[in-house]
Design a protein around this nucleic acid. Sequence first.
DNA 1: CCCTTTTCCTGCCTGC
DNA 2: TGCAGGCAGGAAAAGG
Length: 271
Amino acid sequence: MPELPEVANLARQMDRELRGKRVAGVDVVQPRCLNVSPDEFGQLLVHAQVNRVTSRGKWIFVDLEPEATLLLNLGMGGEALFHRKGEPLPGNRQSAVLFDDGSALSQHFWWFGYVHAVKTVELASHAMTGSLGLDPLDDSEFTPDTFEKILIEKERSTIKTVLMDQKNIAGIGNVYIQDILFATGLHPLRKTADVTASERHVLYAAIRSQLGHALELGGLAFEKDLYGQPGRFMEFLVGYREGKPCPVCGAFVQKIRTGSTASFICPTCQT
DNA sequence: CCCTTTTCCTGCCTGC
DNA sequence: TGCAGGCAGGAAAAGG
């Protein structure tokens, strides 16, 4: 599923491509991914003009004039694709936004995505985006101090749960978490209170370097950008490498269940 | 049938 | 004891 690097890359592309376009219509195939009725969704968006596109964590924010914001969460295996005038929309889409120049933005996911529309003045009360935590690539909000504050508040949870909770840090999912924990030598079930000061330092740096490096490469090689092109990030250390040797010690990478998610770990490097 | 894994909700537990 | 907040587990719109 798209995580922060893929979503940030998409938002950047959408900002360049969609800015200034006016919405001519909406096409809702799966009403259950909306937060309002299809009629209300259309009333909010039709005739509005794209001002700018930003992101936080796994959410994309399309700010429109005069008063609406379109919120996208691509869920698992999701895509947002741009279509020039005359190009057909994908048949598996859940929804699409049609622009008055004949171009369109379609959106598809295979499990649990969201396409929400709100009045921009009510954006702060949108529950799913309003409670998002720190942007890990923003130097001014994600600092060693703000990170430490989260680790102290959540010291009773396991470290993987804390890092993946979008209310703490926004944008880390079950793909990037794997190598972030490996790079820090942390087992996903380690209690947060038992993460040492030096491990916290390494963990902070690992979050920034993993996500930042993947963003520079346009995201994961098995995810698509706005134009259907794959990213160039594909070098996992232990993530999704079950049975292959650990790059540090050579032990075989194991796949284990951690709560309701899977974790890939080196059984000797991660404790 | 089993696997993937996001987000919210529920109910239970703990601690004040 | 009672309440509030934390937290684990389950449910929900598929597809390979």
